[in-house]
């Protein structure tokens, strides 16, 4: 796949390296130091850093401003953008705002329902859905046009990503849904956290058979488990998460004070196995409020040092 944007992530992938991405959640306040500190912990071990957009519908510092703080310290951000909170005017406006700061990566999402967050009585917008947001960014970038048809001066140059969940129901449309996102114009995918490796490999094999892994870069999502409690919570309470019983049992099988270490080891083993699977273009390491573990995971998985890119 040829390079279409100045994105470092795109260059790394196009050069055939397995990319490493991670993510940081902005603070519930306006101190930029919080986001900078998280970035400092991981900056040498990952290629780019996603900034979440009011994740789980809890109000936080906005993704765009947080991306700007990363950019200023020389870390390449991925702007996450959900369709829950903004209509097409605001989405396009924010895309241009990000482009003005030379933010070169965007991840298009629908976002969790607002009932999970701190503004359960608020409206949701969903003027576009995540596929239509992908189409919008591609239109703005490739044709230099707004949805309304007008011309954009200095169009955005963004590498366009989206999420995919190989584990969610209905199972029968997991690969067709990926195909649909590709048809909409997506260029990279970060998957839901993988604990059920067999199921993930099945999904990827099906995608490969349809030739989809030639058309999109798939970054496998991993999250280290901190405790058996977290494993059970993810298994039972988080929609669309598939944590097999063996993983829970493995976490339960070690004493409490060793569980975090075991979680990291499971994560490292997951990456090691998936590194060898054709179609895995890289890894998205989501260490939720546990950023300090990212360097260890990346090193132990044999993904360090990261390639230098101009």
């Amino acid at each position: 796949m040829s390079v279409k944007t100045p994105s470092k992530l795109e260059k790394i992938l196009a050069a055939g390296h397995q990319a490493v991405t991670s993510e940081c959640g902005p603070p519930r306040g306006s101190d930029p130091e919080v986001i900078r500190e998280k970035a400092r912990l991981i900056r040498d071990h990952v290629d780019v850093v996603n900034i979440t957009d009011n994740q789980t519908s809890v109000t936080r510092m906005c993704s765009l401003a947080s991306c700007f703080h990363l950019k200023q310290m020389g870390v390449e951000p991925v702007l996450q953008m959900v369709t829950r909170d903004r209509n097409r005017i605001a989405l396009q406006g924010d895309i241009l705002g990000a482009a003005s700061m030379d933010i070169h990566n965007i991840l298009c999402l629908s976002g969790d329902h607002q009932s999970f967050g701190d503004c359960a009585t608020g409206q949701n917008v969903h003027d576009l859905d995540s596929m239509q947001l992908i189409q919008t960014v591609r239109l703005m970038r490739d044709e230099g046009k707004f949805l309304g048809g007008g011309d954009i001066s200095r169009p955005p140059e963004m590498f366009v990503g989206a999420a995919a969940n190989p584990f969610a129901q209905p199972h029968k449309i997991r690969v067709p849904r990926l195909a649909k996102k590709i048809a909409a114009g997506v260029e990279f995918i970060q998957t839901q956290c993988i604990y059920n490796l067999d199921r993930f490999e099945e999904w990827l094999a099906e995608a490969r058979d349809r030739g989809l892994t030639e058309k999109v870069y798939i970054l496998a999502g991993v999250t280290p488990l901190k405790s058996v409690g977290m494993a059970k919570y993810m298994k039972n309470r988080v929609p669309g998460m598939d944590v097999p019983d063996e993983v829970v049992a493995r976490m339960a099988g070690v004493p409490k004070e060793k569980q975090a270490e075991e979680g990291v080891t499971i994560c490292v083993e997951t990456i090691q196995r998936l590194k060898e699977v054709p179609g895995v273009a890289g890894f998205h390491v989501m260490a939720i409020e546990w950023e300090e573990k990212v360097p260890e995971i990346v090193e132990r998985a044999g993904l360090y040092p990261r390639p230098a890119m101009p």
């Binding site: 369709t83 829950r84 999402l109 629908s110 976002g111 969790d112 329902h113 009932s115 949701n124 969903h126 859905d129 995540s130 596929m131 239509q132 999420a163 969940n165 969610a168 129901q169 209905p170 449309i173 649909k180 909409a184 839901q192 929609p239 669309g240």
Partner: peptide
């Protein structure tokens, strides 16, 4: 659909039920 998505389902669809 709680998010009126026209190209669904969203990532929250869970065993036939809506995430909410």
């Amino acid at each position: 659909c709680a998010k009126r998505v026209l190209n669904g389902p969203c990532g929250g669809s869970n065993k036939g039920a809506c995430e909410i």
